[in-house]
Amino acid sequence: MDNLHHLTLFRAKHGDSWAFEQLVTPHEQMIWRVCWRLMGNRHDAEDAMQLTMIKTWKSIGQYRGNAAFSSWMYRIAVHTCTDILRKKKNDRIELVENFPGDVCLSDTGTMPESSVLETENNERIRQGLNKLDEDQKVTLVLFAVEEKSYTEISEILEIPVGTVKSRIARAREHLRGILEEKGEAGK
């Protein structure tokens, strides 16, 4: 299996797109997940995923095998998303789409009150995430949603652990502020 992986990697490094596809496809869902969670909407997540794949393809020659291939791709995905979020910083218009399983605030008429309240709060958190500073958002999503440790986040984002902790604390504080501002239901 290892030999096969190395062979595929070798071929991908030498420009074999089919080998690259074989190598990357098993990690596709993982990349999609992180892109969606960091970007917060389908359109941007698709863009981020495509960009991640292209970046991975272009820079596969630089992969030295020091870390697992999945970790390397994950890092590329995170950096790609951070870059996109940073570019969108000035003209940020979030178009939150509804996916299967999502509940739109306007469709809550038939739901029980507690569920409606929870759905509203969840929606506010999601919107609040999109309003966060991109660094804070990425760090919080990696920690609270992707369930990465402080050290892992520190390595992925190439920042000190102390910075990771302070970014997460500030992001939570910010979200609490948003909820308070909008008058979180259930007081």
């Binding site: 969670r37 929870e118 709060n121 969840n122 506010r124 958190i125 999601r126 609040g128 995430l129 919080l140 999503v141 609270a144 949603v145 992707e146 369930e147 939570r172 979200l175 609490r176 909820l179 979180e184 259930g186």
Partner: peptide, 11 residues
């Protein structure tokens, strides 16, 4: 707690 619940749901 509400924030954490929201993040869990997001996941």
């Amino acid at each position: 707690e509400t924030v954490q619940t929201g993040l869990d749901h997001y996941r």
